[in-house]
């Protein structure tokens, strides 16, 4: 009995506790991201934003959550019920599952796997299923059109994200996220690879279906896109999953280009602040740009979106991969760190 406890139950409890330590703050962050979004856009448009529920409207996200929880979940009678209910659950789960490999500080990571960045890429490429399943199972024209658009868009921009990741990996010599961050000890990759960061950021906007690439939910033409038939908690799961994905893409940008938890300068006043705080600050800055873009740019036309993805970003990132590889070989900077475990 003691052995059962020691070898099976205790590790299980520890791992569940670790997961909760990541997931609960993440969900609170997601809730407050919606609040910050409304506040920021409000400020940009010279409005106040939510300011009624609680001090400064700080309880607004909980009020919204409670409202969605109390509402009735409506499943359309001609919908494919199992797939219809499964789609939001999948979106939400994937939004959380990716956080298993994100390092919050030196050694502060749930699973420090060798292929961390590939895992992130794999999880984000799965995100399209939630949307496509939702659109198909709703048995509604609007939802289906939204899902098709979204799927095509996500696949297109994933290709250039893949090449950007390869560029970074060439400079690191490892797929491990901690190694990627440690390789930026002297200089953040955002400086030598700045054009790639811009391409990554724009692709991240497209990947998360954010303005100016929010065609899947273009409310003027598709009502609300793939989630038009969803209500109450099923809708809330989509919503939470999307915002969790936004934070995830920001975290990925920070890990790949802004040195993760590393301070900007390796000297006294900066090194006093703990790593996770730096990580959070950097994520918040990227998230602010997400919101800023939303308040600033009009929506792209669909053919322009595809043009940008396939005819601009893909060749650009491909050339940059070759260029980076060439420079690394020529200067002899090619890292061979991955040689040993």
């Amino acid at each position: 009995m003691a052995e059962l406890w020691q070898e099976y139950l205790l590790p299980l409890i520890i791992i569940v506790a670790k997961i909760l330590v990541i997931v609960v703050p993440l969900l609170i962050c997601v809730a407050y991201l919606t609040y910050v979004e409304r506040k920021v856009i409000g400020a940009i448009q010279l409005r106040k934003g939510p300011n009624v529920v609680g001090p400064f409207g700080l309880l607004q996200p909980f009020a919204d959550g409670l409202k969605l929880l109390m509402k009735e979940t409506v499943v359309p009678s001609s919908a494919d019920q199992v797939v219809f209910v499964f789609a939001p659950i999948l979106t939400f789960t994937l939004g959380l599952a990716a956080w298993a490999v994100i390092p919050f500080g030196q050694g502060l990571v749930l699973a420090d796997i060798n292929v961390g960045i590939l895992y992130l890429f794999a999880i984000s490429s799965l995100g399209v299923y939630g949307i496509i399943m939702a659109g198909w199972s709703s048995n509604s024209r609007y939802a289906f059109l939204g899902a098709l658009r979204s799927a095509a868009q996500m696949i297109s921009y994933e290709v250039s994200i893949g090449f950007i990741i390869i560029t970074v990996l060439l400079c690191v010599g490892s797929l491990n996220l901690t190694d990627i961050i440690m390789a930026q000890k002297s200089v953040w990759f955002a400086i030598p690879l700045f054009p790639m960061f811009v391409v990554f950021f724009v692709s991240a906007l497209a990947e998360t279906n954010r303005t100016p690439f929010d065609l899947p939910e273009a409310e003027a033409e598709l009502v609300a896109g793939y989630n038009v038939e969803y209500s109450a908690m099923t809708f809330a799961l989509f919503f939470l999953g999307e915002y969790a994905n936004m934070i995830l893409m920001s975290a990925m940008a920070v890990v790949l280009f802004f040195g993760g938890w590393l301070p900007p300068f390796d000297v006294a006043p900066f090194t006093l602040i703990p790593g996770p705080v730096w990580f959070l600050i950097k994520i918040m800055i990227i998230l602010f740009i997400f919101l800023w873009v939303r308040a600033t740019f009009p929506r792209y036309r669909y053919d322009q979106l595809m043009h940008l993805g396939w005819k601009v970003f893909l060749p650009l990132s491909l050339v940059w991969v070759v260029l980076t590889a060439g420079v690394l070989i020529f200067t002899g900077w090619l890292p061979l760190a991955g040689g040993t475990l």
């Binding site: 799965l126 399209v128 696949i155």
Partner: peptide
């Protein structure tokens, strides 16, 4: 590596 590539290529692209 194979596991991740299987998910990226087959699940993320081919099956879509």
């Amino acid at each position: 590596f194979l596991a991740m590539i299987l998910v990226v290529v087959y699940v993320g692209a081919v099956a879509v």
